[in-house]
Nucleic acid binder design. Structure first.
Lengths: 177, 177
DNA sequence: GAAATTACGTCAACAGTACTGACGTAATCC
DNA sequence: GGATTACGTCAGTACTGTTGACGTAATTTC
């Protein structure tokens, strides 16, 4: 390679590859996949003057209605100040309401309104559609294998959060609307 | 209960679920997985005073050495100004070098230096480790199925970018000079 | 060869999301 | 009653993204 130079930059012309046993293919795919995955709701959010932070808050409040501010902070792994702004906006725009905690009145339980529920669904719809299409296109027979892989990508100590999800609700309570 | 009120917020107490045929499970898993996936390199980047934007630039310059600024912008889907700041820092810190384009001297071909290559590898290592572990933990026998799924998640019109990856540098052209 | 276009760098201004640290208030715990 | 907790908020800052405009050098077009 005719390399004789000082410490200062010499251009390396060969592409990095799986040479070092590093899975660049999936690393890169994960980047592209997530970028496009989030671009769907971004379009909708723009109409409301919201961003991704609003989406995340809205999502989890809909998924775990009644969770407290502290719990939400823990799930999102952001600070109080970061949450404050977006949460306030969502409350002001009547997407989320706060209810004083029953046991502990210092706490604020967060619930979606009908408006907030509708928006959460609207944001999730294109994402879900993309997932379904991807499962079909990739010929993935069992959805569960993707689910297992993604779950295994999450830090073990944080997996508890994932399963707080209400799976028991699946009883299809009320009729259609 | 007692739900009859004006348009203003009434708390909905039931969790959103797969009721509407929406794949909330995977939507949420994708969020958690990507969050933790990016947290690995974030730790390292902090030591250099870099952020995720630097990581992405460094990654693609290492993956496609010699790409031009315009090509990089196209891959990252960001604006010139956003790129300018981080690229300048990477050049100033001797992680990336610019070489005047051979065919078109207006262009700047971007190459990693040894230092830049080393950092790119250091950043990719924990991510690759996480992927390998996830594949094992989830009992995914064939890596390719995950790869296919992720690729199918990418917008079709953008999939071309993915395959620009080297490894088969030949047999691409069709008699053009 | 002059004029238009292209590739890139840069300046200015701004938005969204994240951070830290500090302070105040009400409620609960001990 | 004092300490702690849950939450809200103020101030300041960093990173990454945006748009628009302008300048320069190189290439292309006529």
């Amino acid at each position: 390679m005719t390399d004789r130079s000082p410490a200062t930059g010499k251009p390396i012309r060969t592409a990095i590859s799986d040479e070092d046993g590093i899975d660049f293919a999936i690393i890169e795919l994960f980047f592209f996949a997530y970028r496009d995955f989030t671009s769907d709701p971004d379009q909708i959010l723009a109409d409301y003057g919201f961003g991704r932070a609003h989406h995340r808050v809205l999502h989890f409040v809909n998924r775990r209605p009644g969770l407290t501010v502290a719990e939400l902070l823990d799930v999102l792994k952001i600070t109080k100040q970061s949450l404050a702004r977006v949460l306030k906006q969502l409350i002001d725009t009547d997407h989320i309401v706060q209810v004083q905690g029953p046991r502990d009145r210092r706490q604020r339980e967060l619930y979606p309104t009908a408006k907030g529920r509708a928006l959460a669904l609207a944001l999730a719809r294109p994402q879900s559609r993309r997932i379904r299409a991807a499962l079909e296109d990739s010929g993935t027979t069992e959805r569960a294998s993707i689910e297992r892989f993604l779950e295994a990508m999450v830090n073990p100590e944080l997996r508890a959060q994932i399963n707080i999800v209400p799976a028991q609700t699946s009883g299809k309570k009320n009729g259609d609307h």
